[in-house]
């Protein structure tokens, strides 16, 4: 049993650290990526990778208790709601007239995401 506890301890530590790292990576993408669709991809890293790893780490930490059930419920809701919200958001962005950038930076075209001036508000 001692060994199993040790393994669980280190596994949860690794999961928590990896989850925190993924959150930071996703948030960096959210700030650095050029337009809404790519930023949506970065936010997906937070919503799936970061959230699931951190919640799994916490579940290993709390063992078979009520907390694990609550964490499982949170995980369940996040797994259902974040793809739905992401889909609705992508669809809203598309129908507002924004189009994804389908070329690399060297093409030097900039009309990809600024073709609907009415939707861009002040910074």
């Amino acid at each position: 049993m001692e060994i199993v506890n040790h393994i669980l301890f280190y596994a949860s530590w690794a999961l928590l650290a990896a989850g925190g790292l993924l959150c930071v990576i996703g948030a960096f993408g959210l700030v650095r990526f050029p337009e809404t669709y790519t930023r949506m991809h970065a936010a997906g890293v937070i919503d799936t990778g970061g959230a699931l790893l951190i919640l799994a780490g916490l579940m290993l930490q709390s063992g078979l208790t009520l907390e694990t059930v609550k964490l499982a419920l949170i995980m369940f809701f996040l797994l259902f709601t974040s793809p739905t919200a992401g889909y609705a958001l992508a669809r809203g962005t598309w129908s507002a007239g924004h189009r994804p950038i389908t070329h690399t930076r060297s093409d030097a075209r900039t009309d990809g995401h600024s073709d609907s001036a009415g939707m861009t508000d002040d910074g």
Partner: peptide, 26 residues
């Protein structure tokens, strides 16, 4: 805060919400 379009802000608020859930758990 930076925007620039409303959809970027919605995306940011959505991620912020998920991160708040994680922060509260931790």
């Amino acid at each position: 805060i930076a925007g620039p379009t409303v959809y970027d802000r919605i995306l940011a608020v959505n991620s912020f919400g998920t991160l708040t859930v994680l922060a509260l758990s931790v």
